[in-house]
Design a protein around this nucleic acid. Structure first.
Lengths: 222, 222, 222, 222
DNA sequence: AATGAATGAGCGTTCATTCAT
DNA sequence: TATGAATGAACGCTCATTCAT
């Protein structure tokens, strides 16, 4: 995950409710408030009433713009993860850098982002929601497919012996290692001050793995 | 996290203060039902009504045994994480094994456990709940302190050059790497079939790290 | 009630006071949609939203044409019952027919109409609405006054011994008998297939009554 | 429909919510309030909130006793129509009366009952509700099946030439004629003062029909 | 120990209506 | 003329909690 600017516009180019300027602004305000509630108060507090209170609207107006709460969730997630994807793509597309530095930078950017309140909170909530909400599960998986592809594109030139499937497997493990630091070193977590240590170990360990892993180290999956 | 027997008694041997009386069958039935709801239906469905329905009781009776829902959560968590800790201790305390094998076995056990529905679901929910519930945050942290200590005790003899604080840092990163595989390879997750690949990579990568990391690789935290 | 042509224009020839402009296509489309909703979905579903959806408009536009929902109801009812009245008048005004045949035909036409979905549904809803809506009550009563007058005009020559008030009383009872068949033999009702039996009995019984009832059979009302 | 005592207990012998005395009383209070709302305010005002207000309870308590509003409706209807059926049975079971008097009395009782606010309002609402609510439709039809059987049992000895099916057809028409008087002569209806006239005409006309109708007058239904 | 009963707050949603555009 | 936007009230229902039995 790349660094996210706190007050990003979170992508307004989609087909969405609110075709007038005013309505489009309202929809953005609602989505912003919804994200704030999710991050600052958690999924248990993610109710239309609290979102409405955040953006100084009435519940009925939220229902006007989003006929079903699920629609709000879907647009929120689409906006959010699209933005994460785009920002990750941008940060990965740095020309003239050798693959190892590329991978190193990627890991640094991800772990920095993981340390932000937004990313720590958002993704821990999404991992839980994905357990019982098919849409969330699929949308999150789609995001990670994209993220893993970026990581894989940095690994492949580093270790030409690996097949594409093996590169994917390594990318997945590297991504998993990074995501795992959220639990201990994420915003507000118990070992937040130790995040730099985890970052250093991640860079050393994961870059080394990418360079040295052999095809035989990875069992094939039928 | 060690492998957990599905129908464990979740540790009810000792009596506790509070409105509830431990050892009583009823409280255990409630806790069992509560865990089932949390795992099978998620935090959003974690209501007294559904728990009561699961254990064939009336809501009023749950409120009788747990004056506040929060108390139920706390006892549930204590039971659960105590049990995880104890089982982890048991599996770690295998005499006459060299440290590297010890660490390897630990990683294997953890990742096997992570693949179970119980652990995948439970911990993803707890990570999210910890964001906004101080008790959950602290209790989960305490569990990980214990788990990290076990991992550290396997790392220390493998890499005598490391100070205790550095060993802890390495243990934390190893644990984070493992926890991260939950997101992709856990029960019902998108890359569940690829868990064996992640396991192989984890063993190779993390054991190698434990053996080769040098004190200078780890920034010190003031 | 006479047979109603399904796609009648429901009488929009003249202009009315109020916020709406008669003759305008839009108002008629709204009224048509409103009638469809009332008949096909019932009074419980008679909402501006559903009416708007039926005629492919937005709720705001309905409110533009009808400042109050009650106005829509009133115009709908006026149109509808005016049309019923006019059609009944037309069918009754058949010259050169003896009074008994005239009455017989009237009963036949009414009972045929009662068997239609439109009339069954519309009138059962109106009878209920009339309980608590003064306008509906009065408008429905006005319609029946007109209908009873038509029936009375066929009875009077059949039974010259009756005073006009007595003729009215007989007409009222005949009309009541017919309306009552709606409940059992109307569209979708439990004994819809038995409507022909009720029709035959109605003709036999009510025509005989009209011819044979004596002034003394009808108590006078002060 | 027989005369209903205004403050009848409306049948408390059923399986119903509220097994304790207090709960049973509460359920009865709710049902009483629900009936009052339906009759005095109409189906459009038949909401849990208005019912709760009537019996001085909170909405949540209604939901406690009736998990779904539909359940309240069903119990209300069952209570009500069972009571109508039983009272009708009682009034029909008058020994030592000749069939003609029997039928006359039945008609008198029915029309008297139709003139009450309760019966006028209740049945007009039910006829409308039956259009789009399958349960109401079936329950009302079941009531009428029972009522028609009572009427048929008075007609049969009056006119031995009729087959059972023909007796049923006559009973149905007689019942329809009576129900139809609700529209004009029921409580609060436009010709309420003329109900005695309709009653006299009904007795004369319908009893005569029952005695004189011939099998050939009734078309057979396949 | 357990339950029936009741409450008050809150849930997502729908309603008729208003108003600026 | 028509619609997007917004409101306030009400809808049926679920929630954790209290309390008498």
């Amino acid at each position: 995950m790349p660094t996210i600017k706190p007050d990003s516009e979170s992508g307004t180019a989609y087909t969405r409710p609110g075709i007038y300027t005013r309505g489009a602004e309202t929809v953005d305000l609602i989505l912003k408030a919804a994200l704030d509630v999710l991050i600052e108060e958690g999924a248990g507090a993610f109710t239309l009433r609290r979102i409405a209170a955040r953006c100084d609207m009435k519940v009925g107006n939220l229902s006007y713009h989003f006929a079903r709460k699920e629609m709000l969730i879907q647009l929120l997630l689409d906006d959010l993860l699209d933005y994460y994807e785009r920002t990750l793509d941008d940060s990965a597309r740095q020309p003239g850098i050798d693959p190892e530095t590329q991978l190193t930078i990627m890991i640094e950017i991800c772990l920095d982002d993981i340390g932000t309140m937004r990313t720590t909170r958002l993704f821990t909530e999404l991992w839980a929601l994905a357990n019982h909400n098919e849409f969330v599960a699929e949308r999150v998986a789609a995001f990670y497919r994209s993220a893993h592809a970026q990581i894989a594109s940095a690994i492949a030139p580093l270790n030409p012996a690996l097949s594409p499937a093996e590169v994917d497997a390594v990318a997945r493990f590297i991504s998993a290692s990074m995501e795992g630091t959220t639990i201990f070193g994420g915003y507000g977590k118990a070992w937040e001050p130790q995040m730099p240590q985890m970052k250093a170990l991640a860079i050393k360990s994961l870059v080394h793995l990418a360079k040295t892993v052999a095809p035989g180290d990875i069992p094939s999956i039928d």
